[in-house]
C-alpha cells in the first residue's frame, strides 16, 4: 500500500486497521458470575472495546484491547482479572 504524502489520511475509519491488541501483555478475563451489570468497565474502557451482550454479559474485543487494566481496576466486584497473555 502506497503511503500518502505526509501520511495524510483521506478516508475515514482507517484507525480500525491498526489492531492495537498486539500491544497487550495482560488480557482482561471477565467472570460473569460475579458481574452485577453495573457497566463501569464499559464506561471506563478508553478504547471502547468492551461490549454488553443481550442479558448482561460483557465481552472484550481483543483485537483492540491494549491490556491497560482500567476495567479490572474499576470493577466494584473484582469480576475482571488481568491474566498474563501466553502463547
Amino acid at each position: 500500500m502506497k503511503v500518502n504524502i505526509a501520511a495524510c489520511i483521506t478516508e475515514p475509519g482507517s484507525s480500525e486497521r491498526n489492531k492495537t491488541g498486539g500491544w497487550r501483555v495482560f488480557k482482561p478475563v471477565v467472570n460473569n458470575e460475579r458481574c452485577i451489570d453495573c457497566g463501569s468497565c464499559w464506561i471506563f474502557c478508553p478504547e471502547a472495546c468492551i461490549s454488553r451482550k443481550e442479558g448482561g454479559e460483557y465481552q472484550v474485543d481483543l483485537d483492540y484491547c491494549k491490556g491497560c487494566g482500567i476495567c479490572a481496576n474499576e470493577c466494584p466486584t473484582e469480576a475482571i482479572e488481568m491474566v498474563l497473555e501466553e502463547k
Binding site: 505526509a6 501520511a7 489520511i9 482507517s14
Partner: peptide, 28 residues
C-alpha cells in the same frame, strides 16, 4: 496542495505513523 483541511472533504493530517509507515515518510 494535494490535500487540504476542508470541512467539506475531511482528511486527517499529522496522524500516527507507526513503525510500518514512519521510515517511508522520511524517505519521501
Amino acid at each position: 496542495l494535494p490535500h487540504v483541511l476542508d470541512p467539506e472533504k475531511p482528511v486527517t493530517m499529522g496522524a500516527l505513523g507507526d513503525p510500518n509507515y514512519y521510515m517511508e515518510c522520511r524517505k519521501q
